[in-house]
Design a protein around this nucleic acid. Structure first.
Lengths: 255, 255
DNA sequence: CCATCTTTGTGCACGCGTTCACAAAGACAT
DNA sequence: ATGTCTTTGTGAACGCGTGCACAAAGATGG
């Protein structure tokens, strides 16, 4: 998982637990794969294995959506694909804007998995005037000045921020002011948003640090628990003495 | 957050809860920013605000690490930076390999936030022979054939998978066999790994779907609860009829 | 040295999420 | 039609994580 959700401190929207919502896309992916192999039905056991979860958990998750299974048989793959898609809101089209067309922004723009899930890249936006007009993934990059116009005329409600950390909050404010109510943030900053706006954060740096923690633990403390001492502390402190808190860039952009 | 953790079903390593570990990098980032502004001490209240969490939660998190604060004053910024860095294992150097140098792999390779956190890109690996030798982010891409050699000679224990979904499990197996024990997976697949290996998954597609769910809910069911009906189901099913389950690419690569 | 004031560290209660285990439901064979 | 067998759907127990609220600790001023 990238990183945790912001806001919405466990708002169980209409009885469907957050934890369940987070797993639905996982089930959907597994079901789509089965659908392509023309598998008509799956048991909770099989599907759970494919999705990498516990079968009891899966059944309980589905029970929040309704009773879509047949006892003694399992679940109808196609029907379940539809039900989950509908529940997630993927049967409608979601125009999305990507702000900050650096290395990461470009990678996102090129991602083919958007369309198949109901997402459509409505526009690419960058603050660099030199980028304006340049085609990325077949779409001409537009300047930040046009942000509000683009959002409003396309009815965009989901925005992706892939700018440097310094620009993220400002971009966020403009997105929200223009009508965006869901934001996927790749910049290493805590975004402040008004109530009613959802923010999800993806941060590679954090993921790696969590892995490092477990890795260190697995290494079995070969080096003493206080290895390095103050010297290491100084090194750690100095290492960051170059630019912003985190290189000032999203966890995936060039320095 | 990107997506959830795999394996390690809440293994509270040495008494530090997983949830706390996941927040430590957040605190570290906020503290680093304060350190650069030469702020000597912070209260739990201030730091919590900067990190976007509850102050009680922050204090409890820190209490797992020990008593590093001074009542009536707060926490010493430099000292806390060091303690958290040490706890996360960031005072040592972590060589990392990135496998799959597509759009995303290149973006990751260019990310400057690695070095400042103790991570070092030891090698870039790609299966395409045409890529071999090409410099990306100043590092020459190496062919997959050399994977085992690279891992072993550099003592790499953390691997990043940014390959298409179809290749991910195979790459994963090879990484693990060569000695990698922590994997950050960007490919849209459930990886199977032996016990003792940690996998974390980052998946943009899933993040967007979760946002879409909340967005739909916020939209207030303007369209009827059964909008679209079977037609939409058919559309959803057909839309995916192009390639792999998810375009067969990591949530951030070009199609 | 004492009083006051700030801020930490934590005991406790509550709620969400996970898991077990089983009864109910239905398919399928005879 | 009846019995058997498979698999779902869920009640209940448990454990983790969160947040409140407060006592203890220490700084600071007189």
């Amino acid at each position: 998982m990238a990183t945790g959700r912001t806001h919405r401190p466990a708002t169980r929207s209409r009885g469907i637990p957050e934890a369940t919502v987070a797993r639905l896309p996982l089930y959907l992916r597994a079901l789509t794969a089965l659908s392509e192999r023309s598998v008509p039905t799956v048991s909770s056991e099989e599907l759970a294995a494919a999705a990498g979860v516990n079968s009891a958990k899966l059944r309980k998750d589905f029970s929040y959506l309704g009773s879509y299974g047949t006892r003694g048989v399992g679940y109808d793959v196609e029907y379940l694909v539809y039900q989950i898609s509908r529940e997630l809101g993927l049967t409608q089209d979601w125009p999305v804007v990507i702000v900050g067309i650096g290395n990461l922004g470009a990678a996102l723009a090129n991602y083919g998995g958007f369309a198949s899930r109901g997402f459509r890249v409505a526009a690419l936006i960058d603050a660099d005037p030199a980028m304006a007009g340049k085609p990325v993934a077949g779409i001409a990059v537009q300047h930040t000045d046009e942000l509000e116009h683009i959002i409003e005329s396309n009815g965009v409600s989901i925005g992706v921020i892939a700018t440097p950390a310094g620009a993220a909050q400002q971009v966020c404010d403009r997105l929200v002011a223009a009508g965006v109510t869901s934001i996927l943030n790749f910049a290493p900053t805590v975004l402040t948003v008004p109530d009613g706006v959802d923010v999800r954060k993806v941060d590679l740096s954090i993921e790696l640090q969590i892995l490092a923690f477990h890795e260190q633990r697995k290494a079995g403390e070969e080096v003493g628990p206080d290895s390095g001492g103050p010297a290491a502390a100084a090194r750690a402190a100095v290492a960051d003495d170059r630019k912003g808190p985190d290189g000032d860039m999203p966890a995936v952009m060039p320095a």
